[in-house]
Amino acid sequence: MTNTIFLQQLVNGVSVGSLYALVAIGYTMVYGILRLINFAHGDLLMVAAYAAIFGMGIFSNSWIAFPLAIIITGCIGILLDRTAYKPLRNAPRISLLISAIGASFLLENLFLVIFGGVPKPFPRPDFFASVIDIGALRIPVLTIYAPIITILLFLGLLYIVYRTKAGKAMRAASRDFETTRLMGINLDRIIALTFLLGSCLAAAGGIMWAMKYPQVNPFMGIFPGIKAFVAAVLGGIGNITGALVGGFLLGLGEIMIVALMPELAQYRDALAFVILILVLLFRPRGIMGETIVE
């Protein structure tokens, strides 16, 4: 293993990790407010990718098509809450979980029926397609843009959650629904906002994922979705910063396995599950989670 390859892997790990992070944040936000693992969250990656292909078909301009795809995915996130979760606000947690699994199957199969199972190529705009050389390193610009975009979106999210009234209402609601209502706050709006933000971030992750692995099919969200979920648990579910940290760590961990133990390279995808089991066994609240969630 030469230094160059190692560095190349490192950059790659940070980049993939940033995509896990974007998706993990949505898991953690919805969990924080509804105590629900939103199983359909990973599928929003796929929804965003199709929406972006569709948008490119119409506008042939990624500056219009991508933001539009993000907004559409955000709206689908809200729709998901309205149809699959909102009717069950007072139902037992397990009903909600089953509804989430159902919603995930529904999205996947709906897209299978509409778009078929044949993977579609993803139109990568030139802006993201070039490769830069740093010494002996050859790095696709996307690999560099992904973590930068992630950090920028994350800072924007922190601003909303900690500085705006609606963000403060979100944090209040994550502890106490009834008292939040007593402030004259429309709780359903706040929950919708949570889904909107989480889904938009997942969409940004999904579009970058599709540019990185430009094969779009109805089931493409499952694996990154599961890994992002592990990242959220690793970081401490319910904690936004934790999700970011967990995402980067998981991305780095996977790459390091490949780099340091090449003979284990083919088990790379299993690492997430090993981490999940270890975290649940030894530190269920994750790296940054609070001692008591409920």
Binding site: K168, A169, R171, A172, S174, R175, M183, I185
Partner: peptide, 13 residues
């Protein structure tokens, strides 16, 4: 709201 500051509690009020 235990996780918010005094000021933020008043803001939400």
């Amino acid at each position: 709201f235990q996780n918010l500051s005094v000021f933020e509690n008043l803001e939400l009020g």
